[in-house]
């Protein structure tokens, strides 16, 4: 990978990282705006064949 590509890739990854952090922050803040008794969408159900899902 030449130098210009490497720099572009690093910039893209940095932008993705910042976007991901921003989304996580918004997720947390939206939960904190709810009263605790409403923050209940967290349970994963197990499947008989293994694994689980929300």
């Amino acid at each position: 990978m030449n130098q210009a590509k490497k720099i572009r890739r690093a910039e893209e990854l940095n932008a993705l990282h910042k976007e991901s952090e921003k989304n996580e922050r918004e997720q947390i803040l939206s939960r904190l705006r709810l009263p605790p008794e409403k923050r209940t969408h967290f349970l994963r159900m197990r499947f008989p064949w293994g694994g689980s899902a929300l």
Binding site: T40, F42, R44
Partner: peptide, 15 residues
């Protein structure tokens, strides 16, 4: 555990 953390506002899950 994670259930307490979720009720405390953390975007985590548990089974």
């Amino acid at each position: 555990g994670n259930a307490a953390a979720a009720l405390d506002g953390a975007p985590v899950t548990t089974d």
